[in-house]
Design a protein around this nucleic acid. Structure first.
Lengths: 250, 250
DNA sequence: CGCCAGCTTGAGGACTCTCAACGTAAGTGG
DNA sequence: CCACTTACGTTGAGAGTCCTCAAGCTGGCG
């Protein structure tokens, strides 16, 4: 699916876009697939992971109804998944940041149920699912971890259902900000200085709001001194207030 | 989790509440867990399935934050799953009809992420997850099927997100009716004469609507000649119209 | 410089919610 | 047997949140 680079990249192992890297040395190993595996098991995982050249912004990882072949891990950048309903409307189903796995919605029917597109230049690890199945048969840890991953995505989705069906615009947006902040923290990035990789349109679509409402709520939060926004740059001034709003009953 | 009956039930194998039944002879085998397995594999599955006495209406199968031990298959009756958010509001996450599997949201964190309660007298098969993991390591079909099941639930949930975040009250309710109708058909029940096992409150909660709105839309559909409703009895008069409404863009 | 995409802000309207009253059926106790 | 209670559902009127439509702003790029 991803073109594998024909020659090895130069030796800078610290560049996150660098394809010449392995799971054991990847600085995301603590939050990505290897997290459940022993050292010798990571080596086996490493052998089936394919690392392509970076995707440019707007390039697709896969498209809805493509034959399902692989799941993907984001190494750098950011990816959005979205699906098209019968009626032609787009639904953004998720944003994927470094260390996160996507594509698992394709397992069920051997076709991807969504499309995935890079929201900025992104480095991606591709993991052929047939190999994951093999490996899962051999390594109980791997099987267990994958069951967990799938189950956690179900729980996430159910939380999201609650969010969009029972919460106000302010609660939804606060919730997204808090989520991205927490995921930044997990990667040892600042939880308060955030760069939003997605457009307002994507945010609105993901949260079940129009772009205008998203814009208005951002402005309201800024006016209240909770955040500062300048386009995609977001400074969180009062994370506790946002958490409170996010967990507010309706 | 479920009390296993101390003595075998009488020999009427045709009663769906009968605990003395096995997967091979279960009339739901074509749509339940065995569907992906070979004859000799079903026997192995059968050995780990525990069949309890029927649950009465209102009895819980498990509760949110209980230790995760098993997944469950509905053999007869109907079960609803729901979760409580921090703010104490209830979110109905799914309705489970005969042949359907629930409880998989517990895999991710070894605790159930939702509670499950019988909406009417229900017979349930309990399948300890540790045994499923073992069996999955031995039977690639079993592993594959479980991956599929989990993945399909993700896709379902994402569809539901679209439903509640982008569709009108009429579209949501039409969608639910069509879904239940189709699931009835899968069990060789009438797709047009439906008994709704859940209350209006549950329907509203599931669809992100208030009970009043649900009631009004039912009335509107009836007035338009699409359905007849008398409490929980539902007669579908124009399934095509409902399908059209359900798949309407916004 | 002009154009376009993305975003912001305002005004009015629509859909659904809230509040409230009423209806129906089932169960309880006198 | 009937009055009472309770749970559940229906229907109506008014209010609120968010959407729609519209105009204007900003920054990047040919």
């Amino acid at each position: 699916m991803i073109a594998v680079s024909e020659h090895n990249a130069p030796s800078d192992k610290h560049c996150p876009h660098n394809a010449a890297i392995n799971c054991a040395s990847c600085r995301l190993s603590a939050i990505c697939l290897p997290l459940a595996l022993a050292q010798d098991e990571i080596v086996q995982l490493d052998e089936i992971v394919q690392r392509g050249r970076p995707l440019q912004k707007g390039q697709h990882l896969y498209r809805e109804n493509d034959n399902f072949t692989s799941v993907f891990a984001v190494r750098s950048g950011a990816v959005k998944a979205y699906s098209m309903s019968d009626s032609g409307e787009e639904q953004v189903t998720g944003f994927y940041l470094p260390g996160e796995i996507l594509g698992m919605d394709g397992i069920g029917h051997n076709r991807y149920a969504s499309s995935a597109v890079a929201m900025e230049v992104s480095a991606i690890c591709e993991i052929p699912f047939a190999n994951i199945e093999d490996l899962s048969g051999k390594l109980p840890n791997m099987q267990k971890h994958f069951f967990k991953l799938l189950s956690q995505e179900i729980v996430e989705d159910q939380r999201h259902i609650t969010l969009v069906s029972k919460h106000t615009a302010e609660e939804r947006l606060a919730s997204l900000i808090v989520s991205i902040s927490a995921r930044n923290a997990r990667r040892n990035l600042s939880p308060l200085n955030i760069r939003l990789p997605m457009s307002r349109t994507d945010i609105g679509n993901f949260l079940g709001l129009t772009i205008e409402t998203v814009s208005r709520v951002f402005s309201r939060f800024a006016k209240q001194g909770l955040i500062e926004v300048d386009k995609k740059e977001l400074v969180v001034l009062d994370i506790d207030a946002l958490k409170t709003i996010a967990s507010l009953g309706h």
